[in-house]
Amino acid sequence: MPLYLEIIVCVSLLIGGAFLLVGSYGLVRLPDIYMRLHSPTKASTLGITGVLLASMVFQSHLKGFLSIQELLITLFLLITAPVAANMIAKTALHQRTKPLDKTENQALMETVRDREAPKPPQD
């Protein structure tokens, strides 16, 4: 394997590992569910992207052609992680999970929770 590819793989793994470490630490240390959602969805998604990018470069070199599986996994994660975080946040909101007292705009939580679904248009 050429030196420049080894450097790309190593840097990508280090950056991905750093993001994963920060995401894991944030998940453990942040105080409430609304703050905890930010850490795994942002940092961990970037971390997995770095690891899969390194795998894609390595596998492409071994096979001799572009490895597309890692790219598809990365795309799937980039699409589904924010949607999953949004669903978890909505569940916490409707279960009336209390945020920290220092959280700003808590009145907006009540407004969003109590709003009604849009009505279908009348013909």
Rank of each mutant, 00 (worst) to 15 (best):
S39G: 09
L52C: 06
I79T: 10
T41P: 04
M35D: 12
T103R: 02
C10P: 02
P99T: 08
L78F: 07
L93M: 09
G47W: 03
M35G: 11
T49Y: 06
A89M: 13
H61E: 05
Q59D: 11
L20I: 02
D32G: 05
E116P: 05
S39K: 06
R113P: 05
V83Q: 09
Y4H: 13
K42V: 00
M87T: 11
E70S: 11
I73C: 07
S60P: 10
F19P: 06
H61I: 05
L93P: 01
G23I: 00
L52Q: 03
M1W: 01
L78C: 08
E116G: 09
G26N: 06
M56P: 00
L62M: 12
E70R: 00
L71M: 07
T49L: 11
L66R: 00
T103E: 02
Q69N: 12
L37V: 14
I68N: 07
N86I: 11
L13T: 01
R29S: 10
K98S: 12
L77G: 03
R115M: 15
G17F: 03
M56D: 03
G64R: 00
K42T: 02
D123G: 15
G23W: 03
L13K: 02
T49K: 04
I33N: 08
I79V: 12
L72G: 07
P31F: 07
L20V: 02
T91K: 15
V11Y: 00
K63N: 13
K63D: 15
P118H: 01
Q69R: 03
V9K: 01
V9I: 09
I68D: 10
I7E: 05
